[in-house]
Design a protein around this nucleic acid. Structure first.
Length: 429
RNA sequence: GUGGGUGUAGCUCAGUUGGUUAGAGCGACAGGUUGUGGUCCUGUAGGCCGCGGGUUCGAGUCCCGUCAUCCACCCCA
């Protein structure tokens, strides 16, 4: 940088630029998401990125509310960059209720923002694939959502590296009730239990005791986490419950789809958002070296909370940051295609018009063609053509114009094909 | 938020107890017979040594501050 006020060339903290290669990777990821969603019968929707702050504010206790990028516009309206899209979706569904036929299966890919401390896998902005089924009770929505997301991870080459940990908040409530803990304490307990594995069990016991639980009750809570299967839960309870049957049906459906090696029962999954009601799930790399790849759950009361009619709903969010990190880490990142199939260049300015017409013809044949911006020496042209990664190169000199034939070179196989200019452009000149 | 590491060319990094004019590899660009590419050879460009202060005759090097970044905690998506 020369004279003048120096500008910080880095993007703002937590924000990302995408150079062509990175943008290309992102495009492949987005296409994979879209493809998986459409294959499973989801319709695309989109919502505004700037949202009313009041819609996003919920009860305190959720970190997400403290991390909203909020601001006032010039009329003092309180607005925010959306931290997630689910509230906007709920708003759209409530507003459009009479025009919609249920159940809805909708997806979107949108940028979301959160002001927070950064670490690996966490930026202040990311793109998130959202899948939601609204208006369907029962286990089927969970099964469809998860099979859609799993097929996307499979498509990305991540299949065996990912496992979905599935739990159910209602089932956890059943177990806490069995342990003698009154229902009014369950919501607070979820937050504490979510820390298991991050804090020592002793520390969690202290937290529970501080909250008014007896040491015996805390010990009983820990016993619950020894449960590693739905059968173990059933044996402990000595009976079945609605939540237990629901979860069993989710596992059965996913097994029918053939995902039995990609899923596991894990009571420690609770999720940070407090609008989740029943099923909750998070997908992790099997070595647990990264943050969750995707997560979600059932939120049966969100719509009525924002003033709509009650409707059962299940949602899933799948961000671009962690999945990209894992793909880069295990080396299965898809290769970004070259910008062009064919590079067209020419030796002298006299051949520029011919080169332009040749490029035009190939483009009309649906080829992606990069035309030189000026004359180049042969060496420079082929060096550049090779560098672009294009498969074919057409280099036009005065002799080609004279003979009326151009040569199309296959850069990979080092072979040449001769093409008549007349055949190509219908014009011998 | 706590602790630690790292900031030198576009990238990866050297740089001696403080001592002339700041180094390499890769990449970029230009040449190596004015019509043929990845190798090879030569050359060129590219640096406020993160920023600010201090110590010193002298600081990339030592001290303080600050910012950025990474890691581990904390927390969570």
């Amino acid at each position: 940088m020369k004279a003048g006020a120096s500008v910080d060339l880095a993007p703002p903290r937590g924000m990302r630029d995408f150079y062509p290669h990175q943008a290309g990777l992102r495009e492949i990821l987005f296409n994979t998401w879209s493809h998986a969603a459409r294959c499973h019968g989801f319709e695309r929707y989109d919502a505004c990125i700037v949202e009313n702050l009041s819609l996003l504010k919920r009860k305190a206790g959720e970190e997400i509310v403290d991390q909203i990028y909020a601001f006032r516009d010039k009329s003092q309206r309180e607005l925010a960059l959306r931290p997630e899209i689910t509230p906007s979706l709920a708003r759209m569904v409530c507003a459009g209720w009479n025009d919609l036929t249920f159940p809805l299966k909708w997806f979107s890919i949108g940028q979301c923002f959160r002001y927070e401390r950064m670490s690996r896998g966490r930026k202040r902005e990311h793109y998130q694939w959202n899948l939601d089924v609204i208006g369907a009770p029962g286990p089927a929505p969970e099964v469809e959502l998860l099979t859609t997301a799993l097929s996307a991870t499979e498509e990305l080459g991540l299949g065996p590296a990912i496992r979905v940990h599935i739990s159910n908040r209602e089932l956890l409530s059943d177990l806490l009730a069995y342990a003698g803990i009154p229902a009014e304490h369950h919501a607070a307990l979820f937050l504490v239990l979510d820390k298991r594995g991050k804090l020592s069990d002793d520390a969690i016991t202290d937290m529970l005791v501080d909250s008014g639980f007896t040491t015996e009750a805390a010990a009983k809570v820990f016993e619950l986490f020894e449960l590693d299967s739905l059968d173990a839960v059933r044996r402990l309870l000595g009976r079945t419950t609605a939540a237990l049957e629901h979860s069993a049906a989710v596992f059965e459906g996913l097994t029918t789809y053939g995902w039995e090696n990609r899923i596991c029962f894990d009571l420690s999954v609770v999720r940070g958002l407090n609008y989740y009601t029943g099923t909750v799930f998070e997908a992790f790399d099997v070595d647990r070296r990264f943050r969750a790849v995707f997560g979600g759950g059932r939120y049966d009361h969100l719509l009525e909370h924002i003033g709509g009619r009650p409707a059962p709903a299940v949602g899933l969010g799948f961000g671009d940051v962690v999945v990209t990190e894992i793909m880069n880490e295990i080396g299965c990142a898809p290769s970004v295609p070259a910008a062009a199939d064919t590079v067209v260049g020419y030796m002298e300015a006299d051949q520029s018009a011919i080169a332009l017409r040749v490029a035009h013809q190939f483009r009309r044949l649906e080829e992606r063609v990069d035309l030189a911006m000026g004359p180049e020496k042969a060496r420079a042209f082929f060096g550049r053509a090779n560098h672009t990664g294009a498969r074919y190169a057409i280099y036009i000199g005065p002799d080609d114009v004279k003979t009326g034939h151009i040569r199309r070179k296959d850069l990979e196989q080092r072979t040449e094909t001769t093409i008549s200019l007349r055949d190509l452009t219908g014009d011998a000149s």
